[in-house]
């Protein structure tokens, strides 16, 4: 089983490497976005507060979109049908995609984190490796969410429609722009079930207050649980959506 997941991961990575324009966009777009954010918050303390939330949001957004569209393409061009006939399990496919995209999502995150810290000059107190490791967990959930969501879209247009449905509400409800505590109580309850809430809280605790990964274990556990849940759901819905 594991070997087929690795073959799929290798093929996914190979496809992205051969698509030079996509590769360039993966590397450049996050830098453009973070530069705009940096320029639009001239007050250093506000930028320090917003930056960790934006790192989590961009990791979620880019990984979700990249995986979702690619996975959808696998179905629309008929290769998923071929894979389903082959001796490949649904878990192989989900794990293969997770591993394949993970490498690029990780490179993207590394660029965003380093750019935010060193080019935008935000103040942070946590360990860099702990920030990156926390982001790894955020990416894992975003990739599996992208795979799961794509099983409900029949084309790229429909997939893009999931952004205002799944990503945008999280930006407003998960403490990215204003604290969750300032929202009406019923919206606070809603924020409890959204993964970005834990990604933002955890990353802020590490970057702003110098917490360690052990201190944010609750957020890590919730994000890992979310990744496992979406992986299982993606595996279950895969065959029905070929």
């Amino acid at each position: 089983m594991a070997s087929n997941a690795i073959h799929i991961a290798g093929r996914v990575a190979n496809q992205i490497i051969h698509d030079r324009r996509t590769m360039a966009l993966i590397l450049i777009v996050p830098l453009v976005v973070m530069t705009l954010i940096g320029l639009s918050f001239p007050d250093e303390s506000v930028l320090d507060y917003i930056a960790p939330a934006m790192l989590a949001t961009l990791a979620l957004f880019f990984s979700f979109l990249l995986t979702g569209i690619s996975f959808l393409r696998e179905r629309s061009q008929g290769t998923m049908e071929r894979l389903m006939v082959a001796p490949v399990t649904r878990l192989d496919i989900v794990l293969g995609y997770l591993l394949g995209f993970f490498i690029f999502a990780l490179i993207q995150t590394l660029i965003i984190v380093l750019f935010t810290i060193y080019a935008l000059g935000i103040n942070f107190y946590g360990e860099l490796w702990q920030i990156l490791l926390f982001q790894v967990v955020v990416i894992t959930g975003a990739v599996t969410l992208g795979i799961f969501t794509s099983t409900f879209a029949h084309n790229e247009f429909q997939m893009v429609q999931f952004i205002p449905l799944i990503i945008v509400p999280q930006i407003f409800l998960c403490g990215v722009i204003w604290p969750v505590e300032q929202m009406p109580e019923y919206l606070q309850w809603l924020s409890v079930i959204l993964p970005l809430t834990y990604a933002v809280e955890g990353l802020r605790d590490i970057m702003l207050y110098g917490f360690s990964l052990a201190d944010v274990w609750v957020e890590l556990a919730v994000l890992l649980g979310f990744a496992i849940l979406t992986s299982i759901l993606a595996s279950l819905t895969l065959r029905k959506r070929v």
Partner: peptide, 25 residues
Amino acid sequence: YMPQLPALYNELSVRQNIDFFARIY
């Protein structure tokens, strides 16, 4: 199984496509 659509990975070469299916089989 040869589906109705060509069902290939467009970004990969002829050899890479065939090699991928050889591996997963």
